[in-house]
Design a protein around this nucleic acid. Sequence first.
DNA 1: ATGCCTCAGCTCCTGAGA
Length: 256
Amino acid sequence: MKLATWNVNSLTVRLPQVLDWLMTNQVDVLVLQELKMTDDKFPLQAFQQIGYEGHCFGQKTYNGVALLSRSPATEVVRNIPGFADDMARVISADVNGVRVIGGYFPNGQEPGSDKFEYKRNWLKGLRNWVREELAKNPRLVLMGDYNITFDDADVWDPVGLKDTIHCTEEERYHLRALIALGLNDAYRLFPQTPKSYSWWDYRDFGFRRNRGLRIDHILISDALKPLATSCLIDRTPRKNERPSDHAPVMLELLQP
DNA sequence: ATGCCTCAGCTCCTGAGA
């Protein structure tokens, strides 16, 4: 079973690349972030034509998430139950006996800002809900654009970016608190090339210079950990002519 | 401190992203 996450930065612009990537990689589940479109614009038919069903939780201009799968997705839930949120950031479903949660975590803009306060509250709300979900569904995957680095290994310039957004101790605390619920950073379960990132700034040739951050993550529950066989970041789509600033992250699991 | 780049939209500038 292959699962993946990708922040596409506008599904309108990136649809041809997403279809191409799905046909090449044949993943069973793909969660998307930053659709930047309302539900009525979601290109469901295009996904159906290549063998996927899709569930969308969209919003005008900003945010927006979706879950695509080859097998039926059931028990589809939008947003975080118990956490009131105006923004479309989370979609979850059961697929092949796995509870899959796709999330677009708040950016936070800058420590001390209103948006950082929102990020803090959102992370707490997410954690409280994921704790309950894990109790009900031991086989759980939480993946998406976390907008948080785990540590310096996830940052191209840890000195220059110390304590800046995505790299603050407080954000990293929230990430570790998710791990403490019984989740594992799938990427680090396997040997990886040093300086591997999932996002590169569009500006200043960020990708060409490999000036990036690893902020897109796949967390898997303790029950799934022994079933994981690989986890990788696919940089190929970042080389496209009009790429998203994020690359997809992919996990392979033995079918539970 | 800002621009650098990209995208959406009440579009020829602005806000937001990260």
